[in-house]
Write a protein that binds this DNA or RNA. Structure first.
Length: 432
DNA sequence: GATTGCGGGTGTC
DNA sequence: GACACCCGCAATC
């Protein structure tokens, strides 16, 4: 939508600020809940959106007193990492969710890395002028207004549900088996060679089994389903000043499926618990957050494939938004657009980064993230908040194209899944 | 036990 | 005054 073509009402819904005395009330369509809001985003949610009601975020956000009862302010706590910068199998990194409670967080930092038993380290968020990224929530009329300030300068932590699942698994081994059994009673979840079936591998399984878009997973995570088509081009433009987006609720929409596939392949959400994995198929409307992520990155001059906010669906996105492709033709669109080679599995602890100062860390993180290669249909490094893949060699990638194919079994090996797991994975992907 | 929201208070700019 | 941050409390999960 061209700014010049905006009506007064549209301008109003685009130009509001959380501190405005009066916020727009003539919002035609609300946004899908954004699980990983980043940069300077603004969203208008329905007051009936459960996630918005709870002021949820997958970033670890703590309440900050701004002495304004009308506007709830939250600031990012960053991410807890292994101070040894260790890598688990597949080069996955340890990115834990900081506890929100101060005491719990202190206690958490006294614990050891679940992977290498090294000390943990909290990486504070400094994405807002050296201060933590802040999120603002304000309820006004039929809407919940959200505004974020700053851009997270650290990896994504595990989500709340992932952290809870990990705690549960760690607490009671029985819970682990319970969770495993929930995974379709799948016998395929087994440790990688040389690994014990620890909570880590379970977490890996949970996180990597199925990747879903923000809106999709958000609504699977026990949140009330949206009763209306919540997003549209207007809200999309509201966040990023981009237009020409089709309505995801409209299957006749004019979005080019391939283009959409490529863009949606760069999104950032997942299903993070066994419960989520076992949810029945949902006629998922997804893609806006993904498009947003993509377009935001593009607008910011990033290469989304290199960007840590990158995407990763296991879904045959060519079927977007509603069609469930038949099983016989899904293997190709399913993984065909992975333009890179699998990283070497690696188990190492780097000595270059033990307990360095934050600045050094930040430098390290930026470098690492630029070097990450992440199959678009797989998980992205930052996507996986707990364990991240990487390669030892930097790669430059262009947009995935149809000619870039990836062998399905290789993909599974890359994911640390054997062929049986493939079946489990695909069983868990109802859209297949 | 951990999270969340609220609010009093302090320090800095 | 704005902002970040600390702390405690109560309700909730």
């Amino acid at each position: 939508m061209e700014p010049g073509n905006l009506g007064a009402e549209d301008k109003e819904t685009l130009s509001w600020d959380i501190n405005d005395m009066k916020l727009p009330q003539n919002v035609k369509k609300t946004d899908w809940f954004q699980e990983w809001p980043d940069a300077y985003e603004k969203h208008i949610y329905s007051s009936e959106d459960r996630s918005a009601q709870r002021h949820l975020s997958s970033w670890a956000m703590r309440n900050t007193n701004n002495h304004n009862s009308r506007i709830l302010k939250k600031s990012c706590l960053g991410v807890v990492v292994c101070s040894r910068d260790c890598s688990a199998a597949e080069g996955r990194k340890v990115y834990l969710r900081p506890a929100i409670c101060d005491k719990a967080r202190q206690k958490q930092q006294r614990k050891r890395c679940p992977n290498c038993d090294g000390p943990l380290k909290l990486i504070p968020c400094r994405g807002h002028g050296g201060f933590p990224v802040t999120n603002f929530w304000r309820h006004d009329g039929r809407f919940i207004f959200f505004q974020s300030k700053g851009e997270h300068d650290h990896p994504k932590p595990e989500t709340k549900l992932e952290a809870e699942a990990r705690r549960a698994v760690k607490k009671t081994p029985a819970a682990s088996s319970s969770v495993c059994s929930k995974l379709k009673q799948s016998p395929q979840i087994k440790p990688l060679p040389g690994e014990t079936p620890s909570w880590e591998s379970l977490t890996w399984s949970l996180q990597e089994g199925v990747q879903l878009p923000d809106s999709y997973s958000a609504h699977l995570l026990g949140h009330a389903p949206q009763q209306k088509a919540p997003n549209d081009g207007a809200s999309f433009s509201r966040s990023y000043g981009l237009g020409g987006v089709a309505d995801p609720a409209d299957p006749t929409s004019t979005v080019d499926p391939l283009q959409l596939h490529e863009k949606c392949s760069l999104s950032d959400s997942r299903v993070s618990s066994s419960e989520d994995l076992l949810q029945p198929s949902v006629s998922g409307v997804f893609g806006y957050s993904d498009l947003q992520t993509w377009n935001k990155n593009m607008a910011l001059g990033r290469n989304p494939l290199n960007d840590s906010g990158g995407p990763n669906y296991f879904f045959p996105l060519t079927s977007w938004p509603y069609d469930c492709p038949s099983s016989q033709n899904t293997s190709e669109p399913f993984f065909q657009q992975i333009p890179l080679e699998p990283p070497a599995a690696k188990m190492s602890c780097h000595s270059l980064w033990p307990n360095q100062e934050g600045d050094l860390y930040e430098e390290k993180v930026r470098v690492d993230f630029n070097n990450y290669c992440s199959p678009p249909t797989c998980y992205s490094p930052q996507e996986d908040p707990f364990l991240l893949p990487y390669t030892s060699q930097p790669h430059q990638y262009s947009l995935p194209s149809k000619s870039n194919k990836w062998d399905f079994d290789e993909e599974m090996r890359y994911l640390g899944l054997d062929h049986c797991n493939n079946e489990m994975l695909l069983n868990l992907c109802p859209l297949r």
